[in-house]
Simulated scan of single mutants.
Amino acid sequence: MPAPHNPFKSAIANGDLQLGCWLGLADPYIAEISAGAGFDWLLIDSEHAPNDLRSIVAQLQVIAARNSHAVVRPPIGETWIIKQLLDAGAQSLLIPMVESGEQAQELVDAITYPPHGVRGVGSALARASDFAAIGDYLTTAREQICLLAQVENQKGIDALDDILAVDGVNGVFVGPSDLAADMGFIGKPGQSEVQDAVLDAVDRIVAAGKAAGILTLDKELQAECFKRGARFIATDIDVTLFARGIRASCAASRAHLTNK
């Protein structure tokens, strides 16, 4: 029996739109609700959210029961944490702050078993192999793993062509917020210079034959990125959705009851 099929990897390779949402509340209940909302993929974030390996596993489990695909972002692209996430059952990884072709190649090596890579062989203990029930896991896992490199500063933009040239990088995700900060516009990802840099990166990613992705709440930028060929686009964040909704609810209730 081979490793489970990765529909997200196939979809972005085919150029199909994959609509996503960021999960930063670090809770399986929220992940389960989100997985039933209709998004193609959900990003479990452990770079800027209070997730650890156990909370990630819990969210992977509830998402797996629905039709959304889980993508996991570790806090850093180190081999040891990539190994843990893959063994925990993550098939798609978004690695932050990729800044060179050499770093991208190290990430490819980290998701690949020897002799072609350095991923540790411990699948008999792992959820990824259904605890050794998937007999052909070791020889088929790599084909179903999707590696996404996040380019989000000027160094990464400057090295984008080298990153795109690395075989095994399936897509490149542009991070407007960190890029804006690095360009001197912290907190202003809507600045024209930042958006120009984002769109130029999307154009270069698509031209190289890789999948381009982005997270932005700016609907005009979402549409422009899609128009230019970006195909994995996250359009909202659970934290901001809840914060916006709960604040609006309180304000509306107060106004209704006190006329203030």
Score class of each variant (00 low, 15 high):
Phe39Asp: 10
Pro50Gly: 01
Ala223Leu: 11
Ala181Ile: 05
Ile30Asn: 02
Leu17Lys: 12
Arg204Pro: 11
Ile12Thr: 09
Ala128Pro: 03
Pro50Lys: 00
Asp196Gln: 12
Val57Pro: 09
Ala212Leu: 10
Ala3Phe: 08
Ala13Asp: 02
Phe131Asp: 13
Leu221His: 01
Val169Gln: 03
Gly187Glu: 11
Ala31Cys: 10
Leu85Thr: 00
Asn153Thr: 13
Gly101Ile: 04
Ser10Val: 11
Val108Arg: 12
Ala197Ile: 10
Gly77Arg: 01
Ala180Ile: 00
Asp161Gln: 08
Thr258Asp: 14
Phe232Gly: 02
Ile233Gln: 12
Thr140Ala: 06
Pro114Leu: 12
Val166Lys: 06
Ala11Tyr: 09
Gly38Cys: 11
Ala223His: 07
Glu224Asp: 09
Gln103Trp: 04
Leu53Thr: 00
Ala11Lys: 04
Glu47Leu: 03
Val98Glu: 04
Gln103Arg: 15
Ser129His: 03
Gly117Thr: 03
Leu138Ser: 10
His116Leu: 15
Asp238Asn: 13
His48Arg: 08
Val118Trp: 15
Gly122Ile: 07
Ser34Arg: 04
Val206Arg: 12
Ser177Val: 11
Asn67Leu: 07
Gln103Lys: 10
Asn170Ile: 08
Val239Gly: 04
Thr216Arg: 01
Val169Tyr: 08
Asp52Lys: 01
Pro7Glu: 10
Asn6Ser: 06
Ala124Met: 09
Thr140Gly: 09
Asp45Leu: 05
Val166Asn: 02
Asn170Cys: 13
Gln150Thr: 03
Leu93Gly: 02
Gly156Ala: 03
Gln144Gly: 09
Tyr29His: 06
Leu164Ala: 14
Leu17Arg: 14
Ala208Gln: 06
Gly156Met: 01
Gln84Tyr: 09
Asp236Glu: 13
Ala58Arg: 09
Gln84Ile: 03
Ala88Thr: 00
Ile205Phe: 07
Gly168Phe: 13
Ala126Cys: 02
Ser55Tyr: 02
Arg73Ala: 11
Asn14Ala: 12
Ser55Cys: 07
Cys250Ser: 10
